[in-house]
Amino acid sequence: MTMFVAATAAVIAAMALALIRAIAGPSLYDRVLAGNSIGTKTVLLIGLMGFMMGRPDFLDIALLYALINFTATLAILRFFSYRKIDDAPAAPARDGGAP
């Protein structure tokens, strides 16, 4: 039991660190990366919480969250690739930039 508490604490600490990166940015892609990383940790957190409460059925939710996290990351990237991205660095876009 205590091992699940310790692991949960580690995951939450890592989520807080990733949140710092998500807020600090500086670019959109850093934030998407931090968001994806938080999503990965959320999958672990759901699984650990399930074990902590003695109900490993939570793993179904963790599986679903893993799939949604992946799809959401791709959807966000796709969404932003069709808009002008204002906080891109000052360097000129190569390859014609975003389509």
């Binding site: 998407v32 999958v43 599986l63 893993a66 990237l77 891109a88 000129p92 930039g97």
Partner: peptide, 30 residues
Amino acid sequence: KLGLLALLQFLLSPVATHAIAHAGWMVGFK
């Protein structure tokens, strides 16, 4: 179920990372 979760993580996380890296590259991050 945990094995399935590990397999999904093994297969999907590099695709997501590559998608982010490629999106940043196409926009012109140096």
